[in-house]
Design a protein around this nucleic acid. Sequence first.
DNA 1: AACGAACTCAACCGCCAAATG
DNA 2: TCATTTGGCGGTTGAGTTCGT
Length: 379
Amino acid sequence: MGRAPCCDKANVKKGPWSPEEDATLKAYIEKHGTGGNWIALPQKIGLRRCGKSCRLRWLNYLRPNIKHGGFSEEEDNIICSFYMSIGSRWSIIAGQLPGRTDNDIKNYWNTRLKKKLLGRQRKQQQVQQSRRTASFKQGMIKRSENIANFINIPAGFDNQNPYDLPELPVVPVTNYQTHNPQLIKDQASIKNMLINLGGRFSHDSDTNNTSFQYPIDILSTSSSDQQFYQSSINVLSCTSAANNNNYSQFPGTHCDASNGTGGSSSPTMFHGLNDQNNNLQVDHLHPLSELEIYDNNFAHQHQQLGGFYYQATTETLNNGSTAGTSTASAESEISWGDINSLVYSTQMVAGYETSCPQAVTVPPGLPTVFAESTLLGLK
DNA sequence: AACGAACTCAACCGCCAAATG
DNA sequence: TCATTTGGCGGTTGAGTTCGT
């Protein structure tokens, strides 16, 4: 037998609240408070409503300083960052956004944010796939030309026709939700996401620290995406602090549990990206990191790597040429990752492994998911 | 203008954990 | 220790609205 209902369902009113009911409830709570008993409250004030319904109405609609709609880009980033870290813990996420209710955030996520992110993911996957195909076929043409210098080409074989070449092999990807469901709700998921976006964590055996290296992409992407990186790293530091008593936060990071914005107020994180010679510069280092100055040589070095990383870098360079004027566009080419499936592009990670300078110190004890991403042997 | 599809969001449902006796 | 009550939460629903044809 189930538990008894909290109220007499036959005698309570359901559905939308009338202005009169709102006024009655609001006036009473503002004067007397809830009295610590929501179940008894509607009877006291003569409302034919369930106590739970009164509580919900007050918390989600009537209480002071409630904001509805009009989510800012920064709020989007915070919601996404926390969702990546802790999943659908809406009440906790709402605690980071003053004036927002868990119900509002939940609705916003389900109806808009999720679609927005998945749209970005698909768009980016399409771009990546087309570039992989083009680059692969281009490479095959080159190779076939070289081979043709040494061997006899069979009659009828058109070595200038990319479609006469072998099919592009399927690139293995790893789905962390399938393989490592336990990781999806912890800080590793954020690390994975940052890796997926081109960043890298490496292990420093001397200091026993793990370090995160920003991808060059962050320098050329929109400020909204930069904020997303920032929020993600801050969430990572928050969850790390919660999980590891030996470590408080990233050095220099701000992670204020009272307002929860976790240092997201960092619009100057990557100011002044281009100097007069069009070299990428960073003239304002965010206290979070010791971000090194990347220049175009860095990207040129990466062209030597070939493969898929090269393709991604090419895109980055093209964008990077105007990085100094990058704006907070609503739809960036940079993917935020598939929130639910988190399919990781491991070849991107491999491309960074040997060449990125160190930047942010990450506390010891974090699982090094990067190692796992190299298991496929794509280095 | 009419209709159906898609979307939004307030409200409800049922489960769980903490509090209480 | 156990049963019951209550608050809190996330998932889901469905009425109202907007959009597309």
